[in-house]
Write a protein that binds this DNA or RNA. Sequence first.
DNA 1: GCCGTTTTCGGCCCGACTGTTTTCAGTCG
Length: 580
Amino acid sequence: MASDPSNLQIAAAFDELADLYELDGAIVHRVMAYRAAAKAAREATVSVAALTRAGTVTSLAGIGKTLEEKIVALMETGDIPSAVKLRAKYPTGLLEMTRLPGLGPKRARRLFDELGIDSLDALRAAARGEQLRGIKGFGAKFEASVLSSIGAGIGERPAQRVLLHRALTVGEQIVAALREHPAAERVELAGSARRQADSVKDLDIIATASDPGALARALGELDLIASASAPNDNAARGRTHTGLPVDLRVVAPENFGNLLQHFTGSQAHNMALREAAVRRGLHVSEYGILDDDTGETLRCATEEAVYERLGLAYPEPELRENRGELSPDFVPPRLITVDDLRGDLHMHTTASDGRNSIEQMALAARARGYEYIAITDHSATHGFGNHVPPDELERQIERIAEVDARVDGITVLPGTETNILPDGSPDYDDELLSRLGWVIGSVHTSFGMTSAEMTQRMVAAIEHPWIDAIGHPTGRKIQSRQPYALDVDAVIAAAARTGTMLEINSAPDRRDLNDVHARAAAENGVLVLIDSDAHGADRLQHVRWGVATARRAWLTPEQVANTRGWAEFAALRKRARSAA
DNA sequence: GCCGTTTTCGGCCCGACTGTTTTCAGTCG
């Protein structure tokens, strides 16, 4: 391999091995070990390849001697021998087959062994020919289900998840509507939406009610619900008009804490929680906590009671990913909230591709209670007809100064979002950059560089004296674009060394830095910035999504630069530090 | 395959649902 495999690539290799070993009939715990190792690699805050070279990779929980050898092979040869062997044995079509509902690795393997079915096409043909029912454990209903699933396009691609902001927009309306119902008592969102994950698969809602059946029936009657299956006395299931599944469970008040905890997850958190409980002679489920000694089940009205019975500190939902929140020495951090923000350092106006004027942005920011903003339109080489050439930026500086002088109660900084060119330099000259109050550097072109090249480019930008912060540092777009190849450790180290801030961009499809990287940045002493990247005054509120990511990164207000008042923030800018 | 106040082997979370079953394995969350 030309350069070290990234943590994401190592994680992908382990996930693939988990799938292949599962098809191969390995015991479930071995498969789980590979999946756990993939999670460990994906969430490691340092380069797994670098740890491997240093001989310390087995210090990561879930990675032992065997997996260390596989990483070494991946680094030295670009592949893992056992994966090569298993790939030759099981066609990729088999993995696509296991995406169909009701068809897992065991049953897919049986169809492969007994009928030679190795693709969705072959499976459809066999189902049409009624050949599946000849295999023990398969029947006519399964053939019909296969044809319907394949007809619906399931299996051709992994199930698409919905961006958090879209899911919450409708999810919060559904919760609000259910709370209005006369039978409703408590109604709470659970699941990955409650944990503020990047994307969600469905909406889980947990409720208590004076008349459970009435509340369950109410779900399907909401205008927000396009279709619903027949509700029973304590559960209902429906779909929104965009097809997002919604599950409502109505429970007894004395069990509400158990259910809410269970359905908030994450799965990894719950598994680790139950393992910790077993070591104390307790068994946790959605129905309560069973005590081995007494044989009694403790039911919990609140989540707090669940964690308390297990002797654990209460973790906010955003922290429930089994990333240390269940450790005995876990101390709940005071997580940042939207109300902690005092400024926004990344937004656009009509000078580039924004929809509003400088003044409109300033007034909207002031209405949010901010003390300061920076106007950061795109720079000279942005293209798309939205660039700001140097002479135009000079006029923009004048316009911003005029608004800053005229509008009371908020400081408006003249800034730019300058492109980081392939060689790492900004696309305005230093003299012009020095006249600004704030500069964000972002990569918008040449995404295809190697990791070494991209890292060198980014570090050069970080070392530039007039670049105060790096915008959307990895370039990822949730569900649509992978981050560019980049050694994030090196970027964090350079940012810490130079006093350059790293942004959590709040655009709901970016949230970049992500939770894992933002946590690593803060732990290494980098000041994190939460910006809206608003292209209109009504988008300043997008900081909600950046704050959500920051909370998932365990960030406190102290670790986020723009929670400071203006005087303090001003002095933290790299340009102010250099001058001092 | 990992891991250890059950330590180097024998465990490794919990329960519901489904279709094909006559007692359950596999799948799913």
